[in-house]
């Protein structure tokens, strides 16, 4: 692709563009949440939508999360396709019952007769000293609860295609964007948060991982902002002659186990990198899938780097100690190869 044909967008612009295009295409799509109207969403995911579609289709809500998240489920069952945002995933506790006992279970409880096409959007992740209640990722927690699909894009291109797929999906989809991949002007600059996004609508299948960097020596499975960190680490490793393959899961549910196993069959080494808490979560699930599906192909025991099992501390040196980063990812990969 030549530079002239590139259409560069940040991830947040890619998401709001996807929502706008679906709202134009389908009158049953509407958006609601806290500060999504005039403010455009604290992380910009709904920027410009109020001006385009008006307050009937882009609704600022009171701070009544059980109410409006539950209402999204009710409206979806009644034939609408709501997109409902709750700013930070850390806040989901206040509306948990509506999410995991209702949104996620009604289709199953109805024996498949009732559909709940809600897209529940939220920001995840830390690294900027926002403390224990504003920095978690928590997709492992929601992935444990059957009935919701979960997408966690890392690039503007994926973000748009996955949002369109999520809106068109007949199931509840939890759409989680890391604050660090949004390309926001007030976060630490991240060149990987801006990229080519075609103007015309397109979909990316939910449940399909993407090889963000092909390699033959070690497979690094990760997602969200950690994809960026892993790609940085892979550049360092390449200079040492280690060729790392970086797999971006993009979806947690369904998990693309085939893509992971395929890669491990080629590299024979597995490192899983995750910003979510270490125990009982994504890293364990990925490693188990490989043990079950490609055990004989592993040359060395699989390794994982994740957030230690502690709440997220505020102070910078404490938080940075806990987070996987370029150096620790490269070191872990080196050890597997070495």
């Amino acid at each position: 692709m030549t530079a002239e044909t590139k259409r560069l967008l940040t991830t947040s612009k890619a998401i709001s563009e996807a929502i706008a295009q679906e709202m134009e295409r389908d009158a049953s799509v509407f958006a609601m949440g806290e500060d999504i109207g005039t403010y455009g969403g604290i992380f910009g995911a709904t920027e410009g939508l109020l001006a385009k579609f008006g307050p009937e289709r882009v609704m600022d809500t009171p701070i009544s999360e059980t109410g409006f998240i539950g209402a999204a489920t009710g409206a979806a069952i009644a034939g609408m396709r709501p997109i409902v945002e709750l700013m930070f995933v850390d806040f989901f506790g206040v509306a948990m019952d509506q999410i995991y006992n209702h949104m996620a279970k009604i289709h199953y409880e109805s024996g498949g007769n009732v559909k709940v096409p809600v897209v529940l959007t939220t920001a995840i992740g830390g690294g900027y000293s926002d403390g224990a209640q504003h920095s978690q990722t928590l997709y492992g927690l929601f992935a444990h609860l059957p009935g919701m699909k979960i997408v966690v894009p890392s690039t503007p291109y994926d973000a748009k295609g996955l949002m369109i797929s999520a809106i068109r999906d007949d199931n509840p989809v939890l759409y989680m964007f890391h604050k660090g991949v949004m390309g926001l002007g007030w976060m630490t600059p991240n060149p990987r948060a801006t990229g080519h996004v075609p103007e015309e609508p397109y979909t990316i299948p939910i449940g399909k991982a993407d090889v963000k960097r092909p390699g033959k020596d070690v497979t690094i499975v990760t997602l969200s902002l950690m994809v960026h960190r892993a790609l940085d680490a892979a550049e360092d490793l390449a200079r040492e002659g280690i060729d790392a393959e970086v797999i971006d899961l993009r979806s947690v549910i369904p998990l693309d186990r085939e893509a992971i196993i395929e890669s491990v069959k080629k590299t024979h080494r597995l490192l899983v990198v995750d910003e979510d808490y270490r125990s009982f979560g994504l890293t364990g699930e990925v490693i188990t899938s490989v043990i079950e599906g490609a055990f004989d192909h592993l040359d060395v025991p699989p390794a994982r780097l994740a957030y230690p099992d502690v709440p997220i501390p505020y102070s910078r040196p404490l938080e940075q100690f806990c987070l996987p980063n370029r150096e620790t990812i490269a070191a872990a990969a080196r050890q597997l190869v070495g």
Partner: peptide, 28 residues
């Protein structure tokens, strides 16, 4: 975010906990 802080830097400005004055706060 300092070690001499009320919570040794673990809490930060939204999470000040002080047994001496029975004070607590929440970001939720």
């Amino acid at each position: 975010g300092k070690d001499t802080g009320l919570g040794h830097g673990k809490g930060g400005h939204m999470h000040l906990f002080d047994p001496a004055t029975n004070f607590g706060c929440s970001g939720i």
